[in-house]
Write a protein that binds this DNA or RNA. Structure first.
Lengths: 237, 237
DNA sequence: TAGTGGTCTAGACCACAAT
DNA sequence: TTGTGGTCTAGACCACTAC
């Protein structure tokens, strides 16, 4: 957050989110912003391109940068957002139950995918998420012990991401995820309040650090009525 | 596609997709690429940043740009991809049935969201998608007639996107979409081969042109066993 | 014609990784 | 210390929009 262009990005995005800058209005031109922020045009353009990527503005050649209607986006699970961040936004009655926390030998496929040696171990974490007294999400995590030496139930009950990023100072770089709908397993029926629902939404995701090492595999299983995914996408180049 | 940085992006991404550049290997450094492509470093960096955004490479400070394992990404519905593009990739036995094509007065909420005047009309298109003889997707589209004056069943049976982009020369800029799971409606049961499935996956999406005008609303209803969504995401700034 | 965003350049300094 | 990517600059020319 030290760089100029990120500071400009943050300031303008805040103004858009707060309503200070109204949808359909135009931002000052790039030349004007150059004066306002006392910087070069390329630096302004870096900030504006970020805003465009994230759906805050649309740049139109010859006209300017239009502010987009951002409030419809509420609850973006797109991008990488942890459960704790989501629940804070929702301001809901939310609770996490740690069902299991253990050190195990990785399965053959895990060992291969995570490029582990024969002696490496992995953490297995199983957690249930409760909204308004109902168990609606089952999270199963596999983490490499190399990178995360110690793990306690307390950490898991709070936020794994927060611990990894703030305490261990590891930076999460990118993730791949896949969403499918399947029949519930015995484990799902046991640990979730399925209430007769005959399907669960499964989000499998691989999380990588900044240096491209895989460090976490997550399977997040949702009761279908409590699942929602919102996405903003720009057309391919 | 005239710009240097896009040409460089295309060349390198092609090399990665073809396997000419192997996963976990390093790209030439930015300075070397500057010589190879006879351009400035900022132009190289624009190309590399695109590759990074799209999940082809990971840039690591002090080391270089690592090629990522891209073949696991198969079938990215993320980003904006049309049904025709997907089916070509899948190389499947695929058929589109046009159930309905009509010009209608927009509903009140549509009129508001699309900023239409009282006399404007919208196209309503209902299509069923058949994979291997089974009707598994129901697509319901609303398009503003202002922008798309003529529409025929033939066009709808082929590809709306192709017609819009190639024939009408409109550029699709970005989209917002939402994914939820619900119970099937009467229409779903009628037009799809649900085979006892008690849920459908609903993808609602708004498509906007390059100048930020909303021109299409789509509701795509999938049989759950045939639904799959793959996403690549970078951590928020 | 004037103003907008899109591309490109040649140089500079910095933070970080490998040695 | 050398080489890497990350940021920033001041200037240039272009394509498009509005007038």
């Amino acid at each position: 957050m030290k760089s100029k262009y990120l500071a400009i990005y943050n300031e303008i995005s805040k103004q858009i989110k707060s309503g200070e800058l109204l949808p359909d209005s135009l931002l000052p031109s790039e030349n004007e912003l150059t004066d306002i922020y006392d910087t070069s045009r390329e630096t302004i353009r870096k900030a504006l391109n970020l805003l465009s990527q994230d759906g805050y503005i649309q740049k139109i050649r010859g006209k300017g940068s239009v502010v987009l209607n951002v409030n419809k986006f509420d609850f973006p699970v797109s991008g990488l957002v942890s459960f704790k961040e989501i629940s804070q936004k929702l301001d809901n009655q939310v609770r996490t139950i740690v069902n299991e926390l253990s050190l195990e030998k990785p399965s053959q496929s895990m060992k291969k995918q995570m490029q582990l040696s024969s002696t490496d171990l992995v953490w297995k974490v199983v957690r249930t998420r409760e909204f308004d007294g109902q168990k609606v999400i089952l999270d199963k995590d596999i983490l490499v012990q190399n990178l995360i030496p110690d793990l306690t139930k307390e950490i898991c009950a709070d936020s794994l991401y927060e611990y990894i990023e703030n305490k261990l100072n590891l930076t999460i770089g990118f993730s791949k995820k896949e969403i499918v709908v399947t029949e519930p397993t015995e484990e799902d029926r046991e640990l979730l309040d399925l209430e007769g629902f005959s399907n669960v939404v499964v989000i499998k995701s691989y999380a990588f650090l900044d240096d491209a090492t895989l460090f976490q595999f997550t399977e997040s299983r949702h009761r279908p009525d409590k699942f929602r995914f919102v996405d903003f996408a720009r057309r391919n180049h």
